[in-house]
């Protein structure tokens, strides 16, 4: 089998990889914003609760959570599909990291921005989405893109719960044709080709963001 043939066979699994990525984003993005903002807004006990939830998803090993949810929840009568478990665990894990980018970007803003909003008669939520988030978005985009890449790579873990993604197919192939070096090289190349465009976009945005900062500092 040539490298190309192998890549072609692996690519059959790309729709599963992409599906997990996409559904994962549907968990990650809302989680990142809701919990990042919640952490920014709260104090004391509520903040402690918000932080614990974030830390649970961010700090637990993804593979253990996937196994845990997939193999243990049915014992409690909760049956989630492998796709749901994979997307949710990977998404919330990435979302946990994302929430920290959201919080950090919001907290890096000059508190004078919020005060100016209040002084002009805005309520808190309006200030958040008209004044704080538009400014913070630029700062968190590079992190978001990095996390998107982490998510794409992380989807390879769903192969452990029976989903026939690219990694699953590669594993299956290497059991039939004993050529692991060739097969896993092909797999790496495929993941690289998926992630590299995101890296480039990320770099472009990062450059634009830092240029924007220079302009606003350059009084």
């Amino acid at each position: 089998m040539s490298l190309f043939d192998i890549m072609a066979s692996i690519l059959v699994g790309i729709n599963v990889t992409m599906k997990v990525t996409l559904y994962g984003m549907l968990y990650a993005v809302p989680f990142a914003f809701v919990f990042g903002v919640a952490q920014h807004f709260t104090n004391g006990i509520p903040r402690l609760i918000v932080t614990s939830i974030i830390e649970f998803w961010r700090s637990s090993p993804v593979i253990i959570l996937i196994y845990g949810f997939y193999f243990s929840l049915p014992g409690l009568g909760i049956n989630l599909s492998a796709m749901t478990v994979g997307a949710m665990v990977l998404g919330l894990n990435i979302g946990g990291y994302g929430s920290q980018a959201v919080r950090a970007a919001l907290q890096a803003l000059d508190p004078g921005q919020v005060e100016a909003g209040y002084a002009l008669g805005f309520r808190r939520l309006r200030i958040l989405y008209l004044i704080e988030l538009p400014q913070a978005l630029a700062a968190m985009t590079p992190t978001f893109i990095n996390q998107f890449i982490q998510l794409v790579k992380g989807t390879s873990l769903v192969s452990l719960v029976t989903l026939a993604d690219m990694t699953f197919l590669a594993k299956a192939l290497s059991q039939i044709h004993y050529a692991p070096a060739k097969i896993y090289t092909a797999l790496l190349i495929v993941y690289f080709l998926m992630c590299y465009p995101a890296t480039i976009v990320g770099r472009m945005i990062e450059r634009r963001v830092s240029r924007g900062r220079e302009v606003s500092h350059d009084l």
Binding site: D110, G112, Q113, E115, A116, Y118, A119, L120, G121, R123, I131, P134, Q135, A138, S216
Partner: peptide
């Protein structure tokens, strides 16, 4: 908060560091 809104509608404020919205 209604009272606060009422007051802020009538009171403008200028800060030492301008606090314009850079975006």
């Amino acid at each position: 908060l209604k009272k606060v809104d009422e007051v802020r509608r009538d009171v403008g404020m200028v800060f030492q560091h301008f606090n314009l919205f850079p975006h």
